[in-house]
Amino acid sequence: MKRTLALAVCVAMGGSVALADMLAPADVTYGDYGAVEQSLTGTPGDPENGAQVFLARKLGNCLACHANSDMADQPFHGEVGPPLDGIGSYRTEAELRGMIINSKKTFQGTIMPAFYVADDFTRNQDKFEGETILTAQQVEDVVAYLMTLTD
């Protein structure tokens, strides 16, 4: 909500100041193992919002595939991917950012969706054409949340 307002203000002021620092999906540069050093927005991620994105079925829906003890109060933790307990202790922020932006760069052929890629997906629904699953800031928020999952 707050973010939408801020954006509206910027646009009203006749500039896309807030967007100037935002990295478009096509401009992301990956390291050898798919890590992404550069923040997508330059704005630090908000871990609380990241937790919401992690949970929401229409956003990250990460819990569908990953168990997460930090969310023990939530029902139905998935088993498709590995549990993410302690992930912030053994993965770097850059690695995590890369995995969320496009996990296929790290895990070849993975089932895990690429959350910040706007490819020409085969038979994509019109309403998602050219769209990423998460916004740049939502990616940063999830990364910040994952970094709080330490042993």
Binding site: D119, F121, T122, I133
Partner: peptide, 9 residues
């Protein structure tokens, strides 16, 4: 085996 859709599965 064809991946489809925004989730690309």
């Amino acid at each position: 085996y064809q991946r489809v859709g925004q989730l690309d599965m």
